[in-house]
């Protein structure tokens, strides 16, 4: 219980400190440093208004800088250096990257990650679009949406347990308790398979877990976009005699293309960071390694901080195009 008390105390201290900081800093600014009275009144107000935004921003900027911006540069530095036995680091250039490139496990991780990058966003978006289109036109659509969306609340590890049960294999002759093997045998499969150890197949089976989780997200966003399509465009298409499929692919999809791109890239970022699913289900064995888990293994199992940091930089590089695209989009939006 002592940790729980500590948690309550932390909330009190954390919240109290935040409130005190914002309150006091504003008070100091307005009453002592630049009081809005006396001879310099106008000048003081103007100056106070220049400083105040930074009072509001300071704690957040500190946290962002320390926990997100600084580590990017520090990781870059670590990826170019080597830990010395006595402590401290020495610059070694690209040696870590060379070591990483000569590691077959890294190639496996990169290959698998690229496969994940194609399959998971594509399937999640496709299923999400399908689910959005189907649930938008039935009376029990909201319930259906809720249920498809539900896996979003489930942890990757919880989902890993759920799917381990589905992929479970018992020796031939015994009753299968895994749904996949039961179906496989019912459909005429010869003998039960240990699915998670089957090369290549197991990658797809791990991807299923993430698709299962992400489809709800895609559905929610795409459903909102579909509903925002002007009815006139659809009516016009119906009058022109378009078939339902034509309406969907030629009229609706082009109009929500921007949203599809947002969904796709958001899921892509999730995929690049995917760690828990692989860590919990196979830990990268049987040819299922991915970059995030490879990195974790290098950092905390092999204590190889150089190669670990180098692989983190590879993940960062893969994310960068999306980062740039997002920033460009956000700026365009603000100018509107």
């Amino acid at each position: 219980m002592h940790a729980a008390l500590q948690a309550l105390l932390t909330i009190a201290i954390g919240v109290g400190a935040c409130v005190a900081y914002f309150r006091l800093s504003n008070l100091v600014l307005d009453h002592w440093l630049l009081p809005a009275s006396g001879a310099n009144r106008a000048r003081n107000i103007r100056r106070a208004n220049l400083i105040r935004p930074w009072l509001f921003l300071a704690p957040a900027l500190l946290v962002l800088g320390l926990y997100l911006a600084y580590p990017v540069f520090e990781t870059l530095r670590l990826s170019l250096s080597e830990r010395l036995p006595g402590g401290g680091d020495a610059f070694v250039g690209l040696a870590n990257y060379q070591r990483m490139l000569s590691d077959p496990k890294f190639h496996e991780a990169l290959r698998n990650n690229l496969l994940w990058l194609v399959v998971v966003p594509a399937l999640s978006t496709a299923f999400g679009l399908l689910a959005a289109q189907l649930t938008d036109r039935i009376a029990w659509g909201n319930l259906a949406k809720s249920l498809v969306f539900m896996p979003m609340a489930i942890s990757f590890v919880g989902a890993a347990v759920i799917f381990r049960l589905i992929y479970d294999a018992r020796p031939p002759g015994q009753e299968q308790i895994g749904l996949l093997n039961a179906l496989y045998l019912a459909l005429g499969g010869a003998s039960p398979k240990a699915w998670l150890t089957l090369p290549l197949w197991n990658n797809f089976l791990l991807m299923v877990v993430l698709v299962w989780i992400q489809t709800g997200f895609a559905m929610v966003i795409l459903s909102a976009a579909l509903r925002a399509i002007p009815q006139e465009t659809i009516e016009a298409a119906i009058i022109d005699g378009a078939s339902p499929l034509q309406i969907f692919f030629r009229v609706k999809v082009p109009q929500i293309f921007g949203t599809i791109a947002v969904v796709w890239t958001t899921i892509t970022v999730v995929v690049l960071k995917v760690f828990d699913v692989v860590y919990a289900m196979t830990n990268g064995e049987w040819g299922t390694q991915v970059l995030a888990n490879y990195m974790y293994n290098k950092l905390f199992r092999a204590s190889d901080w150089g190669v670990g940091s180098a692989s983190a930089i590879v993940i960062m590089l893969l994310v960068t195009p999306i980062l740039v695209w997002n920033v460009v989009n956000a700026r365009r939006e603000m100018r509107r």
Binding site: L50, P53, W54, L57, L61, L64, Y67, L68, A69, Y70, P71, V72, E74, T75, L78, V269, L272, K273, F275, A292, M295, L299, W305, G308, S309, A312, I313, I315, M316, V319, I322, L323, N326, V327, A330, R331, M334
Partner: peptide, 26 residues
């Protein structure tokens, strides 16, 4: 205030920075 648009852009950028990068330094 000056730099506001830039800060917003930075926040949008940091949204997708993989937290994997933060592990060792932090």
């Amino acid at each position: 205030f000056p730099g506001r648009a830039l800060l917003i852009a930075v926040v949008v950028g940091l949204l997708v920075v993989p937290l994997q990068l933060a592990l060792v330094p932090l």
